[in-house]
């Protein structure tokens, strides 16, 4: 017996940059069973209403990663999103192309920026050039070694994370969540011999632009957890390359700052991150804020029991520096 259908209104983004001055939204209402994937609904529209609707798809099974788009303002796979739940939450289904990539036509975007960023991280194993792998031999890893990057191979390169990322949106320098998650995979691969260089190269105007907002992890249809892997990458980057960048300098300065009084010394943090000379540039804004908020430039009292905090640092922090 066929499932009961309900009328579901769609608003579908349409734009052909060659012909249209501005995008428009086509409104179509379809009678659909609640479990129908949004992709199936779009294909029905294309078949029954408008054969010019342009979209990218292939497997219809959340494996190929082709049909990522923005559905009710969230970046996700159209084949994996069912119409019933979306209709229940929003009363309609608005379908738009992915963000942070230029629209080619309708729901198809130019993924070149996404792939360029992926290429930049050199997503292949770099073995020791002086010791070529003997032909016909394996290069095995232990299960524990594989465990370290068990999430990243699930990635289907759908670019939903890239579309959801506010750092990508605000700054073209940021390589995006997927590229960094993939980089992590090679950095912790024991067979890769370029780990340190990889960690050095990714830092200037790259790794440290991550906002740790976790929007990538939320968007990812395969639970790759890019945000968590980027966090791991930051800790590894500090261990490998110290505090050469503003981002690593700030993270380490913050850690040291708290180690002194247990509570943040805001003024000192600015100096620790920028250095005395660079801090001078911050003086006008600092003064502007301190006029309203004089505590900004006051030294806070250490917390009660600051000795406990110092003991925790002695036990755990030297260890990380020695690693």
């Amino acid at each position: 017996m066929a499932a009961t259908t309900v009328p579901i209104p769609f608003e579908v983004y349409r734009f052909d940059p060659a012909k249209d001055k501005a995008p428009r939204y086509d409104r179509v209402t379809l009678d659909l069973a609640p479990h129908t994937p949004v992709l199936t609904a779009l294909l029905k529209i294309r078949t029954n209403t408008d054969p010019s609707l342009t979209l990218r798809y292939s497997c219809r099974s959340a494996i190929c990663g082709s049909c990522a788009m923005v559905i009710n303002s969230k970046s996700r796979l159209a084949c994996q999103t069912q119409v019933g739940a979306e209709f229940a939450k929003h009363g309609k289904i608005v379908v738009e192309p992915m963000r942070n990539q230029p629209v080619v036509r309708d729901l198809v975007v130019d993924q070149q920026p996404f792939w360029n960023n992926y290429r930049k991280i050199e997503p292949h194993l770099k073995l020791d050039p002086t010791q070529p792998m003997p032909v016909g031999k394996e290069n095995p890893m232990t299960p524990a070694e594989v465990e370290r990057f068990k999430e990243t191979p699930r990635c289907i390169a759908c670019a939903a994370c890239y579309s959801a990322c506010p750092a990508v949106e605000a700054d073209p320098a940021f390589p995006g969540p997927m590229a960094l998650a993939k980089l992590y995979r090679f950095v912790v691969d024991p067979r890769d011999k370029d780990t340190k260089n990889r960690l050095v190269r990714i830092q200037p105007d790259g790794l440290w632009l991550c906002l740790r907002c976790h929007l990538c992890t939320e968007a990812c249809p395969k639970d790759v957890q890019p945000s968590e892997r980027i966090r791991d990458l930051k800790e590894l980057a500090i261990a490998a390359a110290g505090t050469s960048e503003a981002g690593s300098r700030h993270a380490v300065a913050f850690k040291e700052n708290i180690g002194e009084a247990g509570v943040l010394n805001e003024f000192k943090l600015v100096r620790q991150t920028y250095g005395t000379m660079e801090m001078l540039k911050q003086v006008p804004q600092g003064m502007k804020i301190a006029r309203k908020k004089p505590e900004l430039i006051k030294k806070p009292h250490p917390i009660e029991g600051v000795e406990e905090v110092k003991a925790i640092y002695r036990a755990l922090d030297t260890e990380s520096e020695d690693r």
Binding site: R212, R231, K234, E235, I238, S248, H250, A251, V252, F254, K255, I258, G262, V263, L264, I303, E304, G305, V306, E308, V309, I312, Y313, A315, L316, D317, S320
Partner: peptide
């Protein structure tokens, strides 16, 4: 006696220290 939560920065620099604090 409460200390700072680490504000996400200590987690980036030393995740176990962040948990301990």
């Amino acid at each position: 006696k409460f200390s700072c939560c680490g504000s996400g920065f200590i987690d980036e620099a030393n995740s176990v220290l962040n948990v301990a604090l």
